[in-house]
Design a binder for these strands. Structure first.
Length: 265
DNA sequence: GTCCATGTTCTTTA
DNA sequence: CTAAAGAACATGGA
């Protein structure tokens, strides 16, 4: 579920906890924590939350002790601010008690998790942030790989924050076929792609992300951008530009959607 | 029973 | 050796 727009929307809807104290931590399932065996309860309890920010698809919490921890939502993760009286949804693995509220982490598939990173950097392996990326930097990075552009853009070490939805949408907006090798794109195409990535992400942010099934913000609200997808999961439906049926192929184990006319091979 | 899913990481292959 | 493709992880819904 959660790519940059969804994770940023969660972060935005969590700003009310900044400055507040974590009174206690309940760990209901230890295996979502890393490193294994870390004592979250004593590390985080009685600490104030200084800031909550996003980097790539990770949410980073800075505590007044100077330590940080990160939460990754994986595919089905939910991070919600709730009253203790509200029933716990299934697969709730961790609860941060913040005054009379609870910050709850639930994740059915458990591809997500919570990592104590202390004072180390959260982003060693992450590529640049797409919203501030310069076309020249994107061009340099794409020129270093011969993979299909779709697979290159999914690589978090090349560019951070994009996933299957927004790569398909950005490639459509840029008129680029997903199978074209990354190093075969010219400077004008890369510049257009860079602009398309930003445009698609900003529009998605404005609509609070895409909810296919599981995604909710911290207040439990779904996003609305799924209604505005041009290609993602629109197989056989007419292209918004030319009416040609949208095609789906399998690439890197993921479904990939594109318009065969607007995105020529 | 089958296939599919917004993600990442480890293993295998070329 | 490296780059890229494939499998694995765990759960639920169609």
């Amino acid at each position: 579920m959660p790519e940059l727009p969804e994770v940023q929307t969660v972060v935005n809807s969590l700003q009310s906890i900044c400055g507040r104290q974590i009174t206690a931590v309940t760990v209901r399932r230890r295996d979502i924590l890393s490193p294994a065996g870390v004592d979250f309860a004593s590390n985080a309890a009685a600490r104030r939350i200084v800031s909550v920010v996003r980097r790539g698809k990770k949410i980073i919490f800075l505590l007044d002790s100077g330590n940080r921890f990160t939460i990754h939502l994986g595919m089905t993760g939910r991070l919600t601010l709730e009253n203790p009286s509200q029933p716990l949804r299934p697969h709730t693995h961790m609860i941060f008690h913040i005054g009379k509220q609870q910050l709850r982490f639930a994740d059915a598939r458990r591809f997500g998790g919570v990592a104590w990173i202390g004072t180390s950097a959260a982003d060693e392996k992450l590529g640049p942030e797409p919203l501030t990326l310069r076309p020249k930097i994107l061009a340099e990075r794409l020129a270093r790989t011969h993979r299909a552009i779709k697979n290159a853009l999914l690589d978090q070490g090349l560019i951070a924050g994009l996933g299957n939805i927004y790569v398909d949408e950005a490639l459509f907006a840029a008129g680029i076929h997903p199978l074209i090798p990354a190093d075969a794109l010219g400077p004008a195409q890369v510049a257009r792609l860079n602009r398309s990535i930003k445009t698609v992400l900003r529009r998605a942010l404005r609509h609070r992300g895409s909810t296919l099934r599981d995604y909710r913000d911290a207040d439990g609200n779904p996003g609305n951008f799924q209604k505005l997808h041009r290609v993602y999961q629109r197989t056989d439906q007419p292209c918004a530009i030319c009416k040609t049926p949208i095609k789906a192929i399998r690439l890197g184990g993921r479904s990939t959607h594109f318009c065969p006319v607007c995105q020529p091979q």
